[in-house]
């Protein structure tokens, strides 16, 4: 995190926003994740939530508790706490925690990929070439949002970049793998949605009963592995 600059600004009266250079880049995101992991490791009880995204980290805090404990304005206290913590993180020579490497099986069979053929046609590519491009990249999970465990991953090969559907679907099945702009993502739960669906994973991306309900974490490195419809069905059970 050396030689990097960030800014801190209020985000309402109970959160602050740390922002880095505003662009999608694995290097900037690594800084976000380093700050996230460092702040998480401090287990500061007044910090109620940390929300890492592409080039920002929102820090939610309990203003009343801080004020009660430190007897001075919470925002000033949290701002200096964060500034100091980020300087520590930046000064440390330890490499940022690498994200986990995950392999996610995806079946690109037409029955599970309602938008694959249309996209292939628009781009003048074969469906096989589309799949090859989608599976060739290792993606970074930049953030989770929209639904519990929905990973926003990037960035897809330039040839795969596709705007969201003009008319969102009322129901997208859980496990559906989609593309929106230069991002790719997976619907962890059935939901309305406007991403272009090109396949489906048999993995349960979200399961409330698991100790870790969400399959992905921010910073994970994801590779998609194509599987046949038979393998998909087998893995589902």
């Amino acid at each position: 995190m050396r030689n990097t600059t960030f800014s801190i600004a209020p985000l309402g009266d109970s959160a602050i926003m740390i922002e880095w250079e505003q662009r999608i880049s694995p290097i900037i995101h690594a800084q976000v994740m380093q700050a996230f992991h460092h702040l998480q490791s401090l287990q500061q009880p007044y910090i109620t939530d940390l929300i890492p995204a592409y080039a920002s980290l929102a820090v939610c805090y309990d203003a009343a508790q801080i004020r009660q404990a430190v007897k001075r304005p919470a925002r000033a206290w949290i701002t200096s706490f964060i500034t100091q913590a980020l300087q520590e993180a930046g000064a440390s020579t330890a490499a940022a925690l690498p994200g986990r490497s995950l392999e996610i099986p995806v079946c690109y069979h037409p029955s599970l990929a309602p938008d694959l053929a249309t996209m292939a046609q628009q781009k003048g590519l074969s469906e096989e070439a589309m799949v090859a491009l989608h599976t060739a990249t290792t993606y970074t999970v930049y953030m989770l949002g929209f639904l519990p465990g929905f990973p926003y991953m990037g960035t897809v090969d330039a040839q795969l970049v596709t705007p969201r559907l003009k008319q969102p679907r009322t129901q997208v099945p859980a496990g559906s793998v989609g593309i929106a702009g230069e991002q790719t993502g997976i619907y962890p739960l059935p939901s309305p949605g406007g991403w272009n669906i090109i396949g489906r994973t048999p993995l349960r991306m979200f399961d409330a009963n698991r100790a870790d309900p969400c399959y992905c974490r921010p910073g994970d490195q994801v590779r998609f592995v194509p599987v046949s419809l038979e393998a998909f069905t087998k893995l589902l059970s």
């Binding site: 985000l11 309402g12 109970s14 959160a15 926003m17 922002e19 505003q22 662009r23 999608i24 929300i51 890492p52 995204a53 592409y54 080039a55 920002s56 980290l57 929102a58 939610c60 953030m143 949002g145 926003y152």
Partner: peptide
């Protein structure tokens, strides 16, 4: 054109 970022209650 903004990058998506965390948004708290009341935004």
């Amino acid at each position: 054109e903004l990058l998506s970022a965390g948004v708290p209650l009341g935004t």
